[in-house]
Computed example of a mutant assay.
Amino acid sequence: MTGLFERGVGDAWRTLHPRVRDRYGLESGAGREAVGVGRMHELDRSPLAVPALWLGTLDDFLFPERGADVPFTIVTEPFVDDEGTEALVLRRRFETSPPRTFVDTLRWNPARGCLTDLFGRHGRVAADLHISAEDGALALSIGTQWLRVGGRYLEVPPPFSADGHLRDWYDDGENRFRVSATITNPVVGTVFEYQGAFETEFRPLEDDAPSPSALGGVALPGENA
C-alpha cells in the first residue's frame, strides 16, 4: 500500500528530503514504527487559550503548560483502518510538569478528498489535513474543523475555528529533524505553538499487536451527510 503521507502529498513526494520520505513513508506492511526523541526549544500559548487547553488534557489533546528546552518523544505507528486503507496514529509525550500526552489519528477521507485528523484518544475534534512539499520539507495545514457529537459531525464556525500550520524538515548540518508548529485563533491569538529538534529511529512492530487506535473504525466527516 502507499503510505498515508505519500498519498497526501501526491506527485511532489519525490521532492522531499530523503530522510523525510523515509520517516513519513511508513506503511503498515513494513512492520515498523518511527520513534523520535528530542527537545522542544519552545512551548508557548496565549493566556486566553488556557481554559480550552485545560479541557484538551481530558482527552490527551493539547495542554496549557509552557516551557523551554522540554524533552519530548513522538511515536508514529501505521495501521490499516476498518475500510482497509492506510492510517497512522501519532503519540507525543512532553516532559512538562506534569508530563503531557498529545495523541491524534490520521486517516484518508474519500468524502473530503484529503486526510482527516482525529484529535485525542476519542477523536471528538476532527479536521481536514492538507499536506504539501516545500523545499524538501513536509508542510501541513489544518482546514475545516468539526466537533463529533452523538456520532455526527458539526462544523466549527468562525471565530471558534483555528488556523494551524506545521513544518517538518531535515537539517543536514545538524543531522537531525526540525519541527515548527503554530495554531492560532482570531479571538485568542496563539492557541499553541512549539519549535524543536529530534532524532529518529525505527523499531519493529509485533505481528500480533492489536490496532494502535480505536479510531480506525470511527465514521469521518462527510460520511454521515
Rank of each mutant, 00 (worst) to 15 (best):
R124W: 05
F202P: 02
A34I: 09
L88C: 09
P64H: 10
E86N: 08
R66E: 10
I142K: 07
E33M: 15
V50T: 14
I74T: 14
E174Y: 00
L55K: 10
G216A: 01
G29V: 13
P99Q: 04
W146F: 06
L58A: 13
R152C: 07
L129Y: 03
H41S: 12
L118G: 07
G216E: 01
R7I: 05
T200S: 03
Y194T: 08
H165Q: 08
V70P: 08
A209H: 01
R45M: 08
D82A: 15
L53N: 05
F192W: 01
V191N: 03
R92T: 04
F192E: 03
D171G: 03
L138T: 13
V50C: 08
L90H: 10
A126F: 04
T101D: 10
L48F: 13
V149Q: 09
D163W: 05
P71H: 08
L147E: 03
L205A: 03
L4C: 04
D82G: 15
V9Y: 04
A12T: 08
A111E: 13
Q145T: 15
G123E: 11
A197I: 00
V9N: 04
G151P: 09
G10H: 06
G196L: 00
S180V: 11
V20K: 06
E193D: 11
V80A: 06
Q145H: 06
T96I: 05
I131A: 15
P110Q: 12
D69F: 06
L215K: 03
Y24W: 12
E33W: 04
L154I: 14
W146Y: 09
E134Q: 14
N175Y: 02
L62K: 07
I183S: 02
C114Y: 00
P221E: 04
N224Q: 14
V156M: 08
E95Q: 15
